[in-house]
Design a protein around this nucleic acid. Structure first.
Lengths: 327, 327
DNA sequence: TCACAGCGGTGATCCTCCGGCACCAGGAGT
DNA sequence: ACTCCTGGTGCCGGAGGATCACCGCTGTGA
């Protein structure tokens, strides 16, 4: 500090001080509200909590010192000043977005090796990947993953994994990084025909009298029943089909009751091929949960291709399943 | 969570997903580097550490997945892609800045009551306020502050205060908020004429033989000498001029040695009217420090006018005294 | 008319990212 | 060789962003 006593007096020969911009996230929130006409709508759009948008709006208004927004109990509108301001802001944001997207596409060369569980690949990813390639051209290969994580021979760029439980904090050791994609309830599903011709099901315990479709081991059903306090599920029987999507397929054909998460079952449920056995039944209320995780090598976590795929994936899942928790 | 088992399957009826923009601060850093041709230059311009800019650049490049910048030991240049990208980004940033500045000026109505110490008002603020009014039209009044903080009768909007010491953590109680403007060394200054005709000064202790110019009390000199381990300064004598700028004026006239911080003395030092008594003398090396603080009522801290004045003030001080610490 | 479903706002809390400091590595100009 | 310039890393503290839980308000329909 003693060497700072220089005598020079600098009479401010400064550049144009291009400074003092309002926080950018606040501007994005303002833009979304302006477009959609409501704080909550904007929040949904940006995948943020409504309170965040509310605060951002106040930040912008405080910053510029002008009233930009009229809040009403039925939504939010812009004032005259706000409308003018929004026009310019929106144009600038669009320009940045366009320029960035342009550059991102131009630089696309790499290929992405995706490994995921067969059910997810079959029922969700395969049909969705097309839309990713549209906006992010490149080459992508999908490789079904084994049930047991095998991080030692991690030959893929990214992996999508479903694990039972809600708070699954046991992260893969070092070197890898993972982030949550979505929580999904684990449902017992069967075809309407099967249910029509079988004994009625009122509570979880009744399932023990039914044909349960298993994957590799009996543990999944055992744990699931355990979460509903069904204790005497020690020795289960039934066909073992080794993989989740096979049990789902068998259930569609009326061969029994399968366990499936909502993400891979929703299509069959919506089409009526499958029914949630526990739907509208009090005893099934606190449903067992599972979680999809996104996994990649830590040192490539922020690389362009992986981050874009991750963003796309989480957005697409959120868009398809807005009623599932993603945090 | 139990009520979330609705069966609806939503096939993504989403808006244009205007998402995935790179962090805005990183774009601003990229813009600055592109304009100025160097990381450190950009850092100076944005009042940031050089490392921040470096990281921001890496962030942008990782984000878009393209090489935008060529780092050389003599500066940084843009690649072809980088140059193209910068054109669009810069235009957008300028648009946002212009729109914001426009709106801010339009909404300018209030007046700002500034209270600060006489020395700072006389030697720095009065000449600078003009440039603030240029870019931020409005009405401003300056009122000299007493030495002792009087927060009970705080009739001004903002106050600028100089306190001795480096880490002065004793904040005004509640209701008020303060932020650091700049650290400044506290120098012993005298006119060349005075020094020429007086006993030579080799180390701080020699000052005891000189005519010391005091403000309200002898404490400032006593503490200052104490910071140089001069113990026998119990009973000091000399004229008491009550206010700092008066002692400075007296020192210019050769009436003795005054204590002054660099901010208010720099002009006289540069002009040769005053000399730093301790300049280039080893015993004066670890200089006593003082700090300028910006103070305002907490609930108005982020109001447009106050925040703009605060930003302008800190920027202007930093521009005038780039060699003083501001954090 | 009263419960309810929208709307936006507030307080407290968590945590990620930005920013700073200390230090390192490498080339350029004496 | 020594110094000064350039940019880059490890580490850590703090601000702002995001969330949860909750509130107050208004319009609406049983």
């Amino acid at each position: 500090m003693g060497d700072e006593k220089t005598e020079l007096y600098v009479p401010s020969p400064r550049l144009p001080p291009r400074k003092g911009l309002p926080p950018f996230e606040a501007l994005r929130a303002f833009d979304a509200v302006a477009q959609l006409g409501g704080v909550r709508k904007a929040a949904d759009y940006l995948y943020r909590d409504q309170t965040v948008i509310s605060r951002h709006l106040r930040t912008v208004e405080d910053w510029v010192g002008a009233k930009l927004i009229v809040r009403t109990p039925s939504g939010s509108m812009l004032t005259e000043q706000g409308s003018q301001y929004h026009k310019q802001i929106a144009a600038a944001i669009d320009a940045i977005a366009a320029a960035t997207a342009d550059l991102v596409k131009r630089g696309d060369t790499g290929s992405l090796h995706i490994r995921c569980m067969p059910g997810f690949a079959l029922h969700w990813l395969s049909r969705r990947l097309g839309s990713f390639e549209e906006s992010h051209p490149g080459f992508y290969t999908v490789h079904p993953a084994e049930r047991r994580p095998d991080f030692l021979s991690f030959d893929a760029d990214v992996e999508i994994r479903f694990v039972a439980g809600y708070n699954h904090e046991s992260e893969p050791p070092e070197e890898f990084r993972s982030s949550l994609i979505v929580h999904s309830p684990v449902l017992a599903v069967a075809s309407p025909e099967y249910l029509a011709r079988s004994a009625p099901i009122h509570e979880p315990h009744d399932l023990l009298q039914h044909q349960l479709l298993h994957e590799e081991s009996f543990d999944r059903w055992r744990n699931w029943l355990g979460s509903y306090q069904v204790k005497d599920a020690a020795d289960l029987t039934g066909p073992r089909l080794w993989q989740g999507h096979l049990t789902l397929h068998a259930a569609c054909q009326g061969r029994g009751i399968a366990l499936a998460n909502y993400v891979i079952a929703s299509e069959d449920l919506a089409a009526g091929r499958l029914v949630d056995v526990g739907a509208d039944k009090a005893g099934f209320q606190p449903q067992a949960m599972g979680t999809y995780y996104f996994i990649a090598k830590a040192n490539r976590w922020d690389s362009s291709l992986i981050r874009r795929f991750r963003d796309w994936l989480t957005d697409a899942v959120r868009a398809d399943f807005p009623n599932l928790k993603t945090s």
